[in-house]
Design a protein around this nucleic acid. Structure first.
Lengths: 216, 216
DNA sequence: AGACAAGTTGAACGTTCGTCCCACTCGGAG
DNA sequence: CTCCGAGTGGGACGAACGTTCAACTTGTCT
C-alpha cells in the first residue's frame, strides 16, 4: 500500500529502497516514453505499458498511484534525459566560435531531433500539449524551457549579443518552430538543408545587428 | 457560419445531403473543435461530443463513419476557419508598411492566439501532434503550412526581402516557436511584451541584413 | 392517400479501460 | 527454523468506450 520508492533524487539518510525496485520503476518509465513516442499519449494504456515493459499489469499499480502520476513522472524523466543531452551539446561548443558554427550545430540538433530522435521529440510535444491543461506538467515544462534559455543565453552573451535574453528567446523560438513545422512529415534531405539555411540566415541577421550597432 | 457547399468529394451517387444535414454536420464538427480545444483529443468521446452538440449519440454514427473520419474532418474545418482569419489579417496590411508594423501585427497575432483564441490554438497543436502519426492528417497539416508560407512570402518580398522563401520559413518558425514556448502557461502581460520584443528584434535584424547588403 | 427514402433516435452490443484486491514468492532478521 | 514485509502476479470489478441496429419520424413525389 505504501509507496515503494521515493522521488528519483533520493535522500540517502532514510532507508533506501531496494535497488531492484528503482530499476524496475525506471524501466516502466522508459517503456512509457517509448509508447508515447510511438503511439502518443492516447496509446498509453496500463496494459500496453505492462506489455512494453514485460511486466504484469499489477506492477503498474504497485509502482504508481495512478496513470496521472505515471505520466507526470515520465515527463520528468524525459526532461532529465534531454537536459543531459543539451548540456553536453552546449559544453561542446562553449568556447568562442563563429556564429556560423553555432548555427550549424543548432541545425544538427534540430535535424537529429526530427530524424533519429523523432520518437523522443514526438513524446516531448505530446507532453507539451498536455501541459497546457495540467499545472503539474506545466511546471516541469517551464522549468525545462528556463534551463534551455539559461544555457543558450550564456553562449549568445559570449558571442557578443547585446540583448542575450531576447536573443535566446528568439533562437529558442526558431528551434521549436522548425521542429513543429517539420513534425508532421518525415524529414527529407531538402528540408534538412532548409533547416540549415534558416538558421544560417537567422545568425547572419543577428550578427549584422551586432556589427552595425557596435560601429555607432 | 455554415459552409455553403460540402467540400468533401460526394461519393454518394444516390442523393445530395439536405441543407439541414449539412448544418447539423458542421455543428458537430464545431462541437468537436470546442471539446478538443478544452480537453484535448483524449477528451473527445462520441458521448461527450453528442452532449456538447446537444444531439443524440446515434447522430454521430449517422454523420461520420467513425471517430477517425470525424477527427480528420474537424481538423480540415479548423484549417479552413484559420485560413480565413490569416488571409484577412494579411490583406489588412497588404500595402507597403514599415517592418516594425509588421512585427507588431504578427505579435498581435501570436498574443491573440495565446489569449482569447487559446482553445483554438490548443486544438491546432493537438492535431499537429496527431498528424505525425496519421498521414491523412499530415496532408491537411502541410497544406495549411504551405498556405501560410505562400501568404507570408508575398509580404516579405514586397518588403524587399532577397530570400523571401527562407525568410518566410524563418518568420513562421519564430511565430510557431513563440506559441509553443508559451503554450504551457496562460499568457502574462510580461510575456506578451516579450513576444513583441522578440519579433521586433527579428525584423530589426532582417532589416539590417537587407540594408547592409543592398549598400554593396 | 399511399409509398418510399432520408433523417433521427435510444438502446444495446462487445471491447477495453483504470483500478483494486488477495494470494503468492522470497530474502534477511530474530 | 519461523516470521515478516516488500515485491510480485493474475484475476475481477464497474465504468466508459466506439460502433451497430432496428424502430420511429419527417418530407416529398406519384
Amino acid at each position: 500500500m505504501t509507496s515503494p520508492v521515493n522521488d528519483l533524487p533520493d535522500e540517502l539518510g532514510t532507508m533506501p529502497p531496494s535497488e531492484r525496485g528503482i530499476t524496475r520503476k525506471t524501466e516502466i518509465l522508459d517503456a512509457a516514453l517509448r509508447i508515447i513516442g510511438r503511439d502518443g499519449l492516447g496509446g498509453l494504456s496500463m496494459r500496453a505499458l505492462a506489455a512494453e515493459a514485460q511486466m504484469p499489469l499489477g506492477a503498474m499499480g504497485y509502482y504508481f498511484r495512478g496513470k496521472q502520476e505515471l505520466i507526470a513522472e515520465a515527463f520528468h524523466r524525459h526532461t532529465q534525459r534531454e537536459t543531459d543531452r543539451v548540456v553536453k551539446t552546449i559544453t561542446d561548443l562553449r568556447e568562442g566560435l563563429p556564429s556560423e558554427h553555432l548555427a550549424d550545430r543548432l541545425a544538427d540538433f534540430v535535424i537529429e531531433g526530427l530524424g533519429d530522435a523523432r520518437e523522443q521529440l514526438l513524446a516531448e510535444y505530446s507532453f507539451l500539449v498536455e501541459s497546457s491543461r495540467r499545472p503539474e506538467l506545466a511546471r516541469t515544462s517551464s522549468a525545462w524551457q528556463n534551463s534551455l534559455r539559461t544555457q543558450l543565453r550564456r553562449v549568445l552573451a559570449s558571442l557578443g549579443s547585446q540583448s542575450p535574453n531576447t536573443d535566446a528567446r528568439l533562437v529558442l523560438a526558431v528551434l521549436a518552430g522548425l521542429e513543429v513545422d517539420n513534425l508532421a512529415e518525415v524529414l527529407q534531405p531538402s528540408q534538412a538543408r532548409m533547416v540549415r539555411a534558416v538558421l544560417r540566415r537567422l545568425f547572419l541577421a543577428l550578427d549584422c545587428v551586432r556589427t552595425v550597432s557596435s560601429e555607432n
